[in-house]
Design a binder for these strands. Structure first.
Lengths: 247, 247
DNA sequence: CGTGTGAGTTGATATGCATCAACCAGGGTC
DNA sequence: GACCCTGGTTGATGCATATCAACTCACACG
């Protein structure tokens, strides 16, 4: 497709173990010492690859595993009976997908790769087992899940209280901090998702998203060429998104 | 205040133990056999009472406990930096409040009693301990938290995809099923919250909520006298809320 | 090299709901 | 009983954003 599967993937699979994964300080291993990490290693089903547009799992199919994003990006969405999609989250490397179905028998949402994406599959049964034996793991799972709740609450705030500009500023900043967390540039990055996905996620029309992007550009806040985004005036974006916590 | 603290409270405190609580089939004990329930009993701080408007906990204060609603009702909300409130959920008897802060050191939201409310306080430290020793408890906690995530996703769908009428229909139906779960009438109940709270929760103006209520009334869908609500045409409400799952 | 297809942008118009404003009813207080 | 205060309702107007439509660009494909 394109040559955008860069360095980080290569480095993270170098040893094919959590110990040596470059994301270990973001992902599940965060909670574990190196002894315990071996236990996790035994359970993880590494290096599952999905091409852009492929589904990692599908709403109302049996729930077996959570997935940690290793490289690439994933969107999750729920489909309503009336047939339309609401994107509920974007997941970047180091983030865990599928928590909304924990201890449920079917998936509550659909996960789709936004670009070529590799994930680590973690069977729930064994994840629960692991959480049971390793208190640190249980604690971390609780932490991740509560964070997921807070994220979703923040989305609700965005959707019900903020203007189109504020929502988009908030999203850009959220992405920015998440890139930074991975030691990548917080001000210059490639959007993993299409305008369409942004619009859907933020409860806007595509046209509105497009207009806001150009308005931001004209105001000198950002520099955008397609999915290539440069945040020029972080301060201004932050004050614009004031009152909206970023993930 | 008023004489609206009825039967269910009395019955649920009769023995002051989870074993004999009338909500045991909805609340945490659901996950436990009677041996394990004693362990839970030892930990729970029962019969904390809050009057209408009193805060159960406050955003960014230290997080110590979760709370199970025993009678009454609670709303949770997050306050943005810009100062406005977004209600993130209503909690009825048998439901657990505070999961959005699990394994975090401060509360991510504020909880306020909507009417005179009694709760069981469950210190997190011991809840985690309990979850660690009792696998059923851990499983149940995961379940509750993932449910909370799904609820919040559903709220996002409502906020970004549905009209005012659809949102209100969905809320009424959600309340309906929750009353039914407690063996109360699913078609005739008292709203625990003010119009204001409904509006805030659903991302609408109070005036809009009011208008929709009267419109529903004129169409013969409901019968409303203040907070006293009768759902006359459940079917119609359901098709109106089509595509919005109820909790 | 033309042709098709999907993503993105831009403009013109429409609309659902917020906002502003006035009013009403119930209940607590003096 | 007069007062106020809060919660709720109803009407008139405005605005942010959806919708509809047209166009551009890039890229894939035969």
């Amino acid at each position: 497709m394109n040559q955008s599967i860069p360095v980080n993937q290569v480095s993270s699979i170098s040893k094919s173990s959590c110990q040596h994964c470059s994301l270990s300080n973001l992902c599940l291993p965060l909670a574990l010492d190196s002894d315990d990490m071996n236990r996790l290693d035994e359970v993880v089903n590494r290096d599952r690859i999905f091409n852009r547009g492929e589904q990692v799992f599908t709403q109302s199919t049996p729930f077996r595993s959570c997935y940690a994003v290793k490289s690439g990006a994933i969107k999750t969405s729920v489909i309503t009976e009336s047939g339309d999609e609401q994107i509920t989250g974007f997941f970047m490397p180091g983030e865990l997908v599928g928590l909304d179905s924990m201890s449920d028998d079917t998936h509550a949402s659909t996960a789709k790769a936004l670009e070529r994406t590799s994930v680590c599959e973690i069977p729930v049964e064994q994840l629960e087992q692991l959480a049971h034996t390793l208190p640190g793991m249980q604690h971390h799972m609780f932490h991740l899940m509560s964070q997921e709740i807070r994220n979703s609450h923040q989305l609700s705030v965005l959707l019900s209280k903020n203007t189109a500009e504020e929502r988009i500023a908030a999203l850009l900043l959220s992405l920015s901090t998440r890139f930074q967390r991975r030691k990548l540039s917080p001000t210059h990055f490639n959007l993993p998702m299409a305008r369409n996905d942004i619009a859907n996620f933020l409860g806007l029309a595509v046209e509105t998203v497009s207009r806001v992007f150009t308005r931001f550009q004209n105001q000198g806040l950002i520099r955008a060429r397609g999915r290539d985004i440069e945040l020029v005036d972080l301060e201004a974006l932050q004050t614009m998104a004031q009152g909206t916590a970023q993930t």
